[in-house]
Design a binder for these strands. Structure first.
Lengths: 130, 130
DNA sequence: GTTGACCTTCCAGCTTGTGGAACGCTTATC
DNA sequence: GATAAGCGTTCCACAAGCTGGAAGGTCAAC
C-alpha cells in the first residue's frame, strides 16, 4: 500500500502519517526502489489505534505509551488503566474550567441589553476588579 | 511604572506584556531615556481587562476586538453581546466534545480489571473498529 | 565601585499538525 | 515516444500563546 491508500483506510492523512514518522511515533516505513513508502495491514491497524486514541484526547506522548503497552504481550492492564484514569482526570479538570468560564460568560451576557446603546455589563465585567 | 510593577499590578507577566506589545495587542509603551518601558494606571486597567478576557477563554483576536469596543464610546452593546454569545457557543461545543471523550473513556476503563494481567478492554477498544 | 535587582533584545521551543512550493514517479492515453 | 494527471518525495513556514534563557545595559543602595 502507498501512503495515500493507507491514509484513506486509517482516517489519518498522508501528511500526518509522515509527521508521525518524523517525530518517531511510528517506525520509518519501508520504501520502494523509487523511494515511495509502503505499508501493510498491520500499519493500518496501528494508525487506526493512534487515530482513536487521539480522538479521545490522549496526547501524542500518551499515545506512544499506549502503543508500547498495546504491543507488549506482558503488560499489566493496571498500567493502561492508570494512564486512562489520569487522562480522565485531566479531561474532567478541563471540563470544569470551561464550565466556570461558561457560567461567568452567561452571567455577564444575561445582564447585557444587546441593543444599540453603548452601556454594556460585559465590558464592565471585564474591566472590573473581580 | 516600570514593566515589573505594572506586571504585578495587572497579573500579566512582564514577558507577556512585551509579547502583547510585539503582536500589536497593546500599543508600544513610552520609553525612558535609557530605553525602559513606562506605564501608567490606564495601562494597568487595560492589562487587567485583557487578563480577565483571556481567563474567560477569549482568543487574543477576540480580545483585540473587545478592547476596541471597550474604548469606543459609541459602541452598540449588541456587538459585544454577539461576540460573547459566539464564544459561549464555542465553549459549549468544546465542553460537549470533552464530555463525549470522558464518557467513552469511563466506559472503557470500567471494563478494565486494572491488575497485573495483560488483557485490557481499553487497548482493545482503541484497536477496534468503532 | 560593586553588587543585585531590574531592564533590554533576540532566538528557540512548546504542541500537533497543515499548507504550499518544487520536484520526481507511475500510469494511461494519444 | 511524448505528455498529462495524479500520485509520491522533501523541506520550509505558519498556526496560538506564551515561556525560558542567553547576553548585555541600567539603576539604586551600600
Amino acid at each position: 500500500m502507498n501512503i495515500g491508500e493507507v491514509a484513506s483506510h486509517s482516517s489519518v492523512s498522508a501528511k500526518t502519517i509522515r509527521y508521525y514518522e518524523s517525530i518517531g511515533l511510528i517506525a520509518p516505513a519501508r520504501r520502494t526502489a523509487s523511494g515511495y513508502r509502503t505499508y501493510d495491514e498491520k500499519d493500518v491497524q496501528t494508525l487506526r489505534f493512534i487515530h482513536h486514541a487521539r480522538n479521545l484526547g490522549f496526547s501524542v506522548k500518551d499515545v506512544a505509551m499506549l502503543l508500547d503497552l498495546w504491543r507488549d504481550q506482558k503488560r499489566a492492564s493496571a498500567h493502561v488503566k492508570a494512564l486512562a484514569m489520569a487522562h480522565i482526570a485531566a479531561v474532567d479538570r478541563k471540563i470544569e474550567e470551561l464550565q466556570k468560564m461558561r457560567d461567568t460568560l452567561l452571567d455577564l451576557t444575561h445582564h447585557c441589553h444587546g441593543d444599540d446603546r453603548p452601556d454594556c455589563p460585559i465590558l464592565d465585567g471585564l474591566a472590573g476588579e473581580p
